[in-house]
Nucleic acid binder design. Structure first.
Length: 244
DNA sequence: AACTTAATCAACCGCTCCGCT
DNA sequence: AAGCGGAGCGGTTGATTAAGT
């Protein structure tokens, strides 16, 4: 006797949420509060799994969410927290108001991890990756790096396999390896891995604004131009929430 | 302009945790 | 104490977009 599935998989819709679905969910949650997720889809008139509704609300629709990339301070905080908490994204997210575990996890995997690696820091242990290599000379390090490059097919001297098209021979290969780049630079004896942190120019849509500002921005941002009924409920809900 | 590759992030899946009976 | 069910968590997938050729 197995456990009942959380929802009828034949009946539920999957994939990206439509604006209409978002509207229904927001309207329902604002009127009734986020409770009993299993019942939410039915009560809100959605053909979605309760789990999916919860995720959509907590990760995307919640009015107290910030939008846009994590700023430098937030990123540093994530790194610090990760060093002590590990991959406990929800715990980390709890320390960053307006950020979700999913958002932080994604940001970690796509941005921070790479930055730490570029800085010579192991993103798992937060220890320097260069412990073993920092005593090597630059030449030894370079030799060690090249030795560990993936094996490539033997060349037979023909043009199509010649070095010009070979990744191993492409100087661009080193462009993403700051340590190697620095070794190839002016002062190879002192590897410099001071890679600037890149922040795409995306400005914060929601920076440090109030809950009330956030929700009105949310409604604007989601492009719901027929939201007057929700907005009418909104101030009541907000007042209730703030009183609690 | 067309195609390919890489990057991003919303959403899903399966597991664990925890409260209730 | 054991079993059940709902909620939450973390890992992974896949669609979309951007960048490169």
């Amino acid at each position: 006797m197995g456990r009942q599935p959380c929802c009828d998989k034949l009946e539920v819709k999957k994939g990206p949420w439509t604006a209409e679905e978002d509207k229904k969910l927001i309207s329902f949650i604002l009127s009734n509060g986020p409770c009993c997720w299993r019942a939410v889809p039915k009560l809100a008139g959605l053909r979605r799994c309760g789990k999916s509704c919860r995720l959509r609300w907590t990760n995307y629709l919640r009015p107290d969410l910030k939008r846009g990339l994590l700023n430098e301070a937030e990123e540093q905080l994530v790194i610090d927290l990760h060093a002590s908490l590990g991959n406990r994204w929800s715990k980390i997210a709890a320390r960053l108001p307006g950020r979700t575990d999913n958002e932080i996890k994604n940001h970690w995997n796509t941005h921070i991890k790479k930055k730490l690696l570029n800085m010579g820091i192991d993103p798992v242990t937060h220890q320097s990756l260069r412990k073993e290599t920092e005593t090597l000379s630059a030449t030894d390090y370079l030799a060690d790096f090249v030795k560990h490059l993936p094996e490539l097919p033997e060349t037979n001297g023909s043009d199509e396999n010649s070095c010009s098209s070979d990744e191993r021979c492409d100087s661009n290969l080193f462009k993403n390896a700051p340590l190697i780049s620095s070794l190839l630079g002016d002062d190879p004896d002192i590897p410099q891995v001071d890679v600037p942190w890149e922040f795409p120019s995306g400005e914060q849509i929601f920076d440090s604004v109030s809950w009330d500002d956030n929700i009105s921005s949310l409604l604007d941002f989601q492009g719901f131009d027929c939201f007057s009924d929700v907005e009418m409920n909104l101030s009541n809900v907000l007042e209730l929430r703030h009183e609690q």
